[in-house]
């Protein structure tokens, strides 16, 4: 169970870091050439970070929900079930990387033509749905297991 929470927080966090990193590199490059665009590029950079937050949310739910913080005993079957329930939340983190790619591509396009800001934002957010669904699946499963 600790493992589930840890993984749910750590893996999306790492990949989110990579996603934000990629977008950040592109944003920095654009900002160095055109400082006026820096703040709008920043919006793109934040987007891949949400997967990390979702991971944290799932992890925190597991910690709180199972009373882990209160030092309650956890049986092996429940622990395993929680771990299985955490899988979507863990794996959703990997969507941060493609989202980072899309974000930096959008920043690149935005640098060339400022009017594609809104469409670029849309392309980037498209990826996020699957992360949200992952988090959702975990929350629902946790609810049904009764670990919430």
């Amino acid at each position: 169970m600790v493992l589930a929470a840890g993984l749910a927080i750590a893996i999306p966090g790492i990949i989110s870091g990579m996603g934000v990193g990629i977008a950040g590199v592109a944003a920095a490059a654009v900002a160095s050439e055109d400082p006026k665009k820096a703040y709008k590029a920043f919006v793109f950079e934040v987007l891949p970070g949400t997967q990390g937050i979702y991971g944290f949310v799932a992890g925190f739910l597991i910690i709180i929900g199972a009373g882990l913080s209160a030092g309650a005993e956890v049986t092996v079957p429940v622990g395993l079930a929680v771990l299985a329930a955490a899988v979507p939340a863990i794996l959703q983190g990997f969507t941060a990387y493609p989202q980072g790619l899309v974000a930096s591509a959008s920043i690149t396009a935005f640098a060339k033509r400022p009017e594609v800001f809104a469409p670029g934002l849309m392309y980037t957010v498209m990826v996020e749905l699957y992360a949200i669904l992952g988090l959702l699946a975990t929350i629902l499963m946790l609810t049904f297991i009764g670990a919430l």
Binding site: I15, V25, A26, A111
Partner: peptide, 29 residues
């Protein structure tokens, strides 16, 4: 599963990461 996805991401990142700064700057140019 985690390892597999990690490998996938790392593999892709290694190939294209280095060019992102380049392409973004050039796009601004």
């Amino acid at each position: 599963m985690i390892g597999f996805f990690f490998a996938l991401v790392i593999f892709h990142a290694r190939r294209s990461m280095a060019y992102i700064y380049c392409s973004a700057t050039i796009s601004a140019w």
